[in-house]
C-alpha cells in the first residue's frame, strides 16, 4: 500500500486552515503523533497563542481493561480555553475514541467556543459519531494494521504502516 507524503499533507492542511483562522483560534496537539503534526502546523500558521499539548491517558475508556498507559506525558495548555476556537490535532483518525477522550479532557479546562478536528489521515473504522473537519488524506487501512506518524531524526514527518500490537 502506497502511503501519501506526510510533509506534503502537512503543507496542504496549513493552506486549508490559514483562511479560517480568527484571533481566537488556538491549537492543541494530541501526544505523540498529533503533537508533532501540531508543532509543525502551529509554526506554519504562525499562531499567536502558545501551542497546547495533550495526553489523554487519564481519560481513556479502556483503562479498566488495559490499565494506565506506562509513560503518560503532562498535558500543557498555557492559555484560557474558554471562548476559544480550538483546532484539535491528531495524526490518524480511526475509532474516534481518542478524540472523545480529548474532548472530555478539554472541557475540564473550560468551555471552548468551538472545536474542529484536524487529522493528517482518516483510516475509517469509526466506532463513535466523530468526524474530522480538516483531513489530509483518506486511506483504507485493514483492521490488523496500525497507521501512525513517525518523526525521523532530521525532524521529517512520515506515515508508517505496521502490524498492530494486538494482532
Amino acid at each position: 500500500m502506497k502511503l501519501p507524503d506526510a510533509e506534503q499533507l502537512c503543507e496542504q492542511l496549513a493552506a486549508e486552515l490559514r483562511p479560517r483562522l480568527t484571533p481566537s483560534s488556538a491549537m492543541i496537539g494530541l501526544y505523540t503523533g498529533g503533537a508533532w503534526l501540531a508543532e509543525r502546523l502551529h509554526a506554519l500558521l504562525g499562531l499567536a497563542t502558545p501551542l497546547g499539548l495533550m495526553d489523554i491517558a487519564f481519560y481513556r475508556d479502556d483503562y479498566h481493561a488495559q490499565g494506565l498507559h506506562h509513560d503518560p506525558k503532562r498535558t500543557k495548555i498555557a492559555f484560557d480555553v474558554n471562548g476559544r476556537e480550538l483546532l484539535l490535532v491528531d495524526d490518524v483518525l480511526y475509532t474516534g475514541r481518542t478524540v472523545r477522550a480529548a474532548m472530555n479532557e478539554l472541557f475540564d479546562y473550560g468551555r471552548p467556543a468551538s472545536i474542529a478536528l484536524v487529522v493528517l489521515a482518516d483510516r475509517g473504522g469509526r466506532e463513535l459519531p466523530i468526524c474530522a473537519q480538516y483531513c489530509g488524506a483518506r486511506l483504507d487501512v485493514p483492521s490488523g494494521m496500525r497507521l501512525r506518524l513517525k518523526r525521523e531524526a532530521n525532524g521529517k514527518l512520515a506515515l508508517a504502516l505496521e502490524p498492530s500490537r494486538a494482532a
Binding site: F58, Y59, Y63, L68, N104, E105, D108, Y109, G110
Partner: peptide, 8 residues
C-alpha cells in the same frame, strides 16, 4: 487545573 479531577 481549575477542574482538578479525572475520571479514572
Amino acid at each position: 487545573r481549575e477542574v482538578k479531577k479525572v475520571p479514572l
